[in-house]
Write a protein that binds this DNA or RNA. Sequence first.
DNA 1: CGGGGCACTCAATGCGGTTTGGATGCTGGG
DNA 2: CCCAGCATCCAAACCGCATTGAGTGCCCCG
Lengths: 342, 342
Amino acid sequence: MNLKDLAQRLGLSPTTVSRALNGYPEVNEATRERVIAAAKEHNYHPNTRAIRLATGRAMAVGHVIAIANRHEIVNPVFADFIAGAGETYSRNDYDMVLSVVPDEEEAQTYRAMKVKGNVDGVIVHGPRENDPRIPLLREVGLPFVVHGRATGATEDYSWLDVNNRRAFQRATEHLLDLGHRRIALVNGLEFMDFAIRRRRGYVDALAARQIAPDPALMASDEMTEVAGFRAAHTMLDLPDPPTAFVAASMLSGMGVRRAVEGAGLKLGRDVSVIIFDDDLSYMKNGEDRPIFTAMRSSVREAGRLVAEMLLARIANPAAGEVQRLLEAELVEGMSTGPAPQR
Amino acid sequence: MNLKDLAQRLGLSPTTVSRALNGYPEVNEATRERVIAAAKEHNYHPNTRAIRLATGRAMAVGHVIAIANRHEIVNPVFADFIAGAGETYSRNDYDMVLSVVPDEEEAQTYRAMKVKGNVDGVIVHGPRENDPRIPLLREVGLPFVVHGRATGATEDYSWLDVNNRRAFQRATEHLLDLGHRRIALVNGLEFMDFAIRRRRGYVDALAARQIAPDPALMASDEMTEVAGFRAAHTMLDLPDPPTAFVAASMLSGMGVRRAVEGAGLKLGRDVSVIIFDDDLSYMKNGEDRPIFTAMRSSVREAGRLVAEMLLARIANPAAGEVQRLLEAELVEGMSTGPAPQR
DNA sequence: CGGGGCACTCAATGCGGTTTGGATGCTGGG
DNA sequence: CCCAGCATCCAAACCGCATTGAGTGCCCCG
């Protein structure tokens, strides 16, 4: 059952039927109702492929997941971010198309997307310092919104980010307020923009109390349980070990906890840990009483918002670029306490 | 740059250019090479929307992620599964379109996909007992492959699954061989098909050694850290606590570990734990020496294979349904040891 | 009563490819 | 020398919708 069939059955032209269904004003209300009723009766749905060709819009947005061969890792926050963005797309009748490509093919993928026209815009994930994707997408002419920011990018572009610097500054201050002085940072990989900002927040908070950052207390690695464990394990073996940790994620925090407990120490009493919590649905930080004290910000909510920003850009490309900064919230859990007396 | 432009520039008809690029035999090899060279030079990519309309194929497959409102959870294995499937799609020039919908709208979503024609087939995630999606998709006429199986489904359908029963049977046997007799099961939600099979494997292994399963040692909940902790914590408080656990996932295992260590016990000495490990890229079970002894099977590899099965079905719908059962591999880690002497 | 203007409808064209059904030229065998 | 047959190539139709530009009939006003 296509438009032509339906029009024939109604004794109308395809034009009129199309306009009736799409809410154009130049069609008699009585006719419109008759058309709508017939469409429902015959279960008519316009063919998506035809609409897309005729209108020149893809009604889809792309998410490119670049996989590096060396440390082949799928970001764990990805699933929740996608879920959030997907809600927005569903509400707006957009499709989400996911491309998984080796990272050396990423640029080529964006170019192909533009030329093939299978998406109207893209979301940029995990920006790095001076991220080349931003000038590339501008050049290619594909609307985009960045989840995060890219330090060093000179041009104006749309992004949504969590205030990572502030979050880590507050986390560190919180530990300082509890009397801790040897505070370690278990950071993510520091070519990622968010990790750079987090370190800055941590260093700034220490500096404000006249504490020089100790390189031995600053680790940077994948945000996995194993990496968290390794970093904390090494640091706890130092002659002057830390009494507190700021960890980049739930998983890192779990690794730190394993190292702490493995050393015969008790979390929240001997050693304090505060994490950044993306509030992942499958990795909830406890229920009523959080396991970890944390700086929390829902990545799923971020997904929803970023998608909305992109759809707005696609609908009205002439509008200016938009930026949005979210603040993480401090939640007190069972993993922090006053610094132990020497 | 479209087909017509390119043809004009080459002094050929669009027909010939199209055929040259699509490998049809009725075009001179010299001409074909000339066309291909020109296409590359002008960065010509056929417009996806036009191809889709003309061929009637979507060149895309759908993954529907149903979100239940009560326990609103995005499956953590999802990201890796998608990454695997995405590799297959990229290689075959297919798009992956992801729909995130509230679970009560799932049926409607499949119907809409068929009518709108934006996908050629779908992957079914997380099948349950007597899963209604299987008859639905058959009725709707959308090609599909199930990741997992649905106990109770009578019709013939294509699936790929891990031998969950066997994996849990072997895990339990391994613990029995180590001398354990009080063995607990920390299972996933038992309306999920895989969880049903896992329990069966566990019970079977016990039965083979004349051990009656103790309901107090069988928990069933979300596969999160918190749920794993709660279950293990309760069980370790029993008058006759378990000396070993079989846990459904890496996260569950971490929760169990926290409970074990919280009770002042040592993993691998006082209490043994063996997990099912999906080999997630962001949750590696250690490196050289695994943290947990585990039954391992890569969900990413499963994604690759399931996607291949679906593309094969789409290419040749007349071929019969295909089933494939993968075996999990036992890897010895640091979390198991001989049962402690009473 | 005539005509301007409004409300409504339609035929035709375009989107950018694929595919059908020839047309053309060339070759080789009878 | 003629023609069947093959190798190449092309014009035109088609996929299913949106949209442009043109009617058509009717009402209302002068």
